[in-house]
Amino acid sequence: MSLTITCPICGKRDGYEFRFGGEDKGPRPEEDGLTPQRWCEYVHLNECVAGVQKEWWVHKDGCGSWFTIHRDSVMNVEVATLEAHK
């Protein structure tokens, strides 16, 4: 495997220029009425999808942008959409 990732600013680059930033879980939950379970879910729990998932990456050795891509975790390749490679 040899991951490449498309940075919205710098284009397609070697995967090792980036750092993974987690499954996309959306913005953090509102604090009002927040239970420890819900907070734990946001902080620690993952769906661990074996397939395509939306996830965050940062172009660590490049422009520093945070962005999301879709990636097939079985093949370890970037794909265009959630539906791709299914």
Binding site: R19, G21, G64, W66
Partner: peptide
């Protein structure tokens, strides 16, 4: 550090 700042303000 910068990565941390940008991550937590990304939305």
């Amino acid at each position: 550090t910068i990565e941390w700042l940008r991550y937590h303000t990304r939305f």
